[in-house]
Nucleic acid binder design. Structure first.
Lengths: 117, 117
DNA sequence: TGTCAATATTACGTCTGACGTAGTATGATT
DNA sequence: AATCATACTACGTCAGACGTAATATTGACA
């Protein structure tokens, strides 16, 4: 059973902002963190991730900066969360709580409706 | 604060199937039930609702039938959930639980991160 | 009697985010 | 030398949500 990209839709940005909260990071690192934090249940697609960066930078939620001389020596584009990004994140969290409450009303868990009732 | 249509996306079908579980229903009725059940927090758009009907009928999750002579006398298109629809609903419920668990890891509730930390 | 609100649905077009496919380039490993 | 992991970028497609609008019936109200 996979996670529906339709639900995650609109929350990829939120997840990324969460991971950028404490310090800047970059694509590959973020993608690995998402996998780890979700216990391997969610693996974000590269294109989804990088298009999220582009979108969020355009929206002013993150800022990018380059680094050539890291530990490995590879070029990387780092992203840093902005104040607008923090605000947006907080709003999305509130929205999630609300949304979850609503969807729950229409969802039955466990053994309910597993038979032919 | 409104509910993001991006999260609901893909779960409108699930909500509708939930409401069709016990007995057939039709557009207007369903839309009112969604509003009521969600305590007015979610109001499904007409176009969203009817396009969901079309999609689900195409997918075999629901079947339609007409009725001219109801209590009011208005023409209506009723929808009835199929076995495939019940199966799909159950799957979406399981998926929701999983998805929710994942998203939760990236969401902070209440007072966390409300300041400038 | 005319009009308005609520009911009940359909048509058409746009937008956005996710993602498939593919390509580029470097450093590390075998 | 070949392959893998890293670190992206470009381009195009698709589906679901939704904006706008049109249509038709019934009941209420003035």
């Amino acid at each position: 059973m996979d996670i529906s990209s339709d639900v995650i839709r609109g929350y990829n940005d939120t997840m990324i902002l969460y991971l950028l909260w404490e310090q800047p990071s970059y694509g590959y690192e973020i993608s690995k963190q998402i996998k780890t934090l979700s216990d391997g249940k969610y693996i974000i697609k590269e294109t989804t991730l990088y298009s999220a960066f582009t979108r969020m930078e355009k929206n002013g939620y993150i800022e990018s900066f380059s680094s050539q001389s890291t530990d490995t020596g590879k070029r990387r584009t780092y992203y840093r969360i902005t104040e607008a990004g923090r605000k947006y994140y907080r709003e999305k969290c509130e929205e999630w709580v609300l949304t979850q409450e609503v969807v729950e009303k229409f969802i039955l868990k466990g053994d309910n409706r597993n038979g032919n009732d």
